[in-house]
Computed example of a mutant assay.
Amino acid sequence: MKVKKNFKEGDKVVMHSCVEAAMYNGKVWECSTDSFVDKANDEVVYLQGFSGSFVCEYLQLVNVPATINDMQILIHDNAVKKGFWEDEEWNFAEKIALIHSELSEALEANRLPHNKGYCKVVVSDITKIKDDAEFLKKFEAQVKNTVDDELADSVIRICDLAEVEEIALELHVQAKMRYNSLREYKHGKNY
């Protein structure tokens, strides 16, 4: 007998072990309804932005920070625990250069022929591995140093620096998105 998932409206989930999981590659979906049993006796749920219901057996609940600001705090706390802020005399330019280095690593991964620099697995399948040693082995073999991984590193470093600088990054991103939506095509430039 299948284990009931009992998803609730607002839960964040990712698809796994199905064709759609490969198509959406780790996309986080929000449940727009509680899960329920359909006419075929499958537990299903509706997902925001997805047409029709989806079988819960192929969904996994994810613990996603509610906001970018929440993510900033978690990221900075981990960076402190790992020793990245031991120096009381830190250098802003150095932190920006480290962000730039992550973006350069993404560019180098992108330059590999035949899309070899991109993650070829559904990353949510790896993150659900409970054993840390197995997770590390799979991550290092299938995700590490890909474009996907280096862009994630860039975001992590940006969030860490924003937290130290006491910048409410989420509010600034929202304001900038609105500002950009009101600008002219290509913001008046060639590219």
Rank of each mutant, 00 (worst) to 15 (best):
V55W: 13
C56W: 09
E57S: 12
Y58C: 07
Y58N: 12
L59E: 11
V64K: 15
V64Y: 08
P65D: 09
P65A: 09
P65L: 10
P65K: 13
A66C: 11
A66I: 05
N69I: 02
Q72V: 00
Q72M: 06
Q72T: 02
I73R: 14
L74K: 14
H76T: 01
D77R: 15
N78R: 14
V80G: 06
V80C: 11
K81P: 05
K81H: 10
K81V: 03
K82Y: 07
K82M: 06
K82S: 09
K82Q: 10
G83L: 03
G83S: 05
F84V: 00
W85D: 00
W85M: 03
E86R: 13
D87A: 09
E88L: 09
E89W: 13
N91A: 11
I96K: 14
I96H: 13
A97F: 15
I99T: 07
H100A: 07
H100N: 13
E102L: 06
L103Q: 12
L103T: 08
L107R: 15
A109S: 06
N110Q: 10
P113G: 06
H114Y: 13
N115V: 02
N115K: 14
N115S: 10
K116H: 05
G117T: 02
G117M: 01
G117F: 03
Y118A: 01
Y118L: 04
C119E: 00
C119S: 04
C119V: 01
K120F: 03
V121R: 09
V123F: 07
V123E: 03
D125F: 05
I126K: 07
I126M: 04
T127N: 10
K128M: 12
K128Y: 12
K128D: 09
K128A: 12
I129G: 10
D131A: 12
D132P: 15
A133W: 10
A133I: 08
F135L: 05
F135S: 04
L136F: 07
L136T: 05
K138E: 04
F139R: 07
A141V: 00
A141W: 01
A141L: 01
Q142Y: 03
Q142T: 00
V143G: 03
V143L: 00
N145T: 00
N145R: 05
T146C: 01
T146F: 01
V147R: 08
D148N: 10
E150Q: 10
E150R: 09
A152L: 03
D153E: 00
V155F: 06
V155I: 02
I156A: 09
I156Q: 05
C159Y: 05
C159M: 11
C159P: 06
L161G: 06
L161S: 07
E163R: 15
V164L: 08
L169D: 04
E170V: 01
H172A: 03
